[in-house]
Amino acid sequence: MADNTCNCSHRQCTFSGEERLCEILDRAGVPHDSKWRTLVFYMRGLGEFSTLNDDQKARIQQLLVDVLHRRDFSEQSYHDILRADRDIRVEPYECRMREALQEAERLAREFRAMLHQRRGDMDKLEQESVRAVESGLDPAEVVRLLRATFSEVREQMDNDAIRVGELTVTDPLTGLGNRRAFDMALAAGEAAWKGGTGLALVLFDVDRFKRINDQHGHRIGDQVLRTVAEVLRRKVDDCNRNLDDGGEGGRECASVVARYGGEEFALVLTGEGAQQAAEIAESVRAGLEGVSFAIRDGQGQVVEHGVRVTLSAGVAHAGPNMAEPLADNLFDLADKALYEAKREGRNRVRVAIGAN
């Protein structure tokens, strides 16, 4: 194993065979204080951190570039960098937390509206019941009217239950499945895989999405996400139609098309759809590449034409010898393939090696 220690002095400077590295730091004015040297080496090695996306890595490394440019190696500067590094790392999780809270608020509003409506229905039921009893009609007719009124309210409540179920598994921005729907579909796919059905997972990520938000605003960012969702939905529908044309009915390419979180999307593919995972992913990538956006101002006037957005994708297949827990391992493989697509330049599809 390589010795990753750094022996820095005015006379000798070595680091894992890169003898000039510490000398470069000396010329840059980086103190010999071990905390600053350790911080530099950490930021220098960010390329190997699979838990960070490219944007996070670039922003963290820019922190180092800025401090080297300023030559500010004070205690305050050191702690400022650590704080900024922490903020960049937790930002995606904070974003997902905000999305979860927004979804919870949306569901609460929907539930309150339903309860308010049903409260009105119950008041109406009470009034109708009193009128029926006081009408002096034949008892059999009164019973018929009451049953009809109760049946109407029960049907509305059944519809509410269906609506609530839909709300809890639907992403409000794109209309695709949400993270909950994704988890359920992957669990169902795992159960089917144990019965001999093919299973594959495709993870998509919108390239440089933060730059889109920063340059054009969140309204355009939301438009991009809705467009990505529509391309995904259309391509999966095409795949389903192609399978149906093949003869057997009732076959589907995807168990779920979901917005996994933020600018990330996922396809859980089963059966013959799993066999076509890479082709479907490439079709989605190419389909979005051909879409051109127009940026409009608050008055609806076009201020920029030809804005294009790309996707990177990682594909993983559940092989017969894949270790448990299968869902976690399949996701990790797809995520690593997605990272490779990003690392190799974005706007491409990569398939996990060793998925079997």
Score class of each variant (00 low, 15 high):
68 L>I: 04
197 T>G: 06
233 R>T: 04
243 L>P: 05
110 E>Y: 09
258 A>R: 06
233 R>P: 03
5 T>K: 13
267 L>G: 02
283 S>V: 02
72 D>N: 09
126 E>V: 15
278 A>K: 13
91 E>I: 03
118 R>W: 12
43 M>S: 02
10 H>D: 12
30 V>G: 03
118 R>Y: 14
254 A>L: 08
158 D>V: 11
285 R>C: 08
4 N>Q: 12
346 R>S: 04
104 A>S: 12
163 R>S: 09
25 L>S: 03
230 E>N: 12
301 Q>M: 11
142 V>A: 03
115 L>Y: 15
214 D>A: 08
144 R>V: 02
288 L>A: 04
44 R>I: 07
265 F>D: 00
341 A>I: 05
49 F>A: 14
82 L>I: 08
318 A>G: 01
115 L>A: 13
192 A>S: 15
152 E>K: 12
138 D>T: 01
330 L>H: 06
228 V>F: 03
280 I>V: 12
117 Q>A: 11
179 R>Y: 07
22 C>I: 06
116 H>S: 14
45 G>R: 14
277 A>C: 10
286 A>I: 11
224 V>I: 01
61 Q>M: 06
145 L>V: 04
316 A>N: 02
238 D>I: 02
211 R>E: 10
169 V>G: 00
315 V>H: 03
205 D>G: 03
272 E>N: 08
249 G>F: 08
339 Y>K: 03
188 A>F: 12
338 L>W: 04
261 G>R: 12
268 V>F: 11
23 E>W: 13
243 L>E: 07
9 S>D: 06
163 R>E: 06
262 G>C: 10
12 Q>W: 13
216 H>I: 01
278 A>L: 05
306 G>F: 12
277 A>L: 13
226 R>P: 00
276 Q>P: 04
178 N>P: 06
177 G>K: 06
222 D>W: 10
263 E>P: 01
236 V>T: 02
145 L>P: 00
10 H>V: 13
336 K>C: 07
289 E>I: 01
18 E>F: 15
294 A>Q: 14
318 A>E: 00
1 M>D: 15
134 E>H: 04
340 E>P: 00
7 N>V: 11
214 D>M: 10
6 C>P: 08
76 Q>N: 10
98 R>P: 03
167 L>K: 08
268 V>Q: 09
240 N>G: 00
151 S>Q: 15
39 L>P: 06
105 E>S: 09
112 R>G: 04
23 E>M: 08
245 D>Q: 12
282 E>S: 03
66 D>V: 14
22 C>P: 01
207 D>N: 09
236 V>F: 04
98 R>G: 06
41 F>V: 09
135 S>I: 00
327 A>W: 06
237 D>H: 15
29 G>R: 03
329 N>H: 09
62 Q>C: 02
300 G>P: 10
352 A>K: 01
33 D>P: 01
243 L>F: 11
215 Q>P: 00
334 A>D: 01
265 F>E: 00
191 A>D: 13
150 F>R: 09
290 G>A: 11
72 D>E: 06
336 K>V: 08
168 T>L: 12
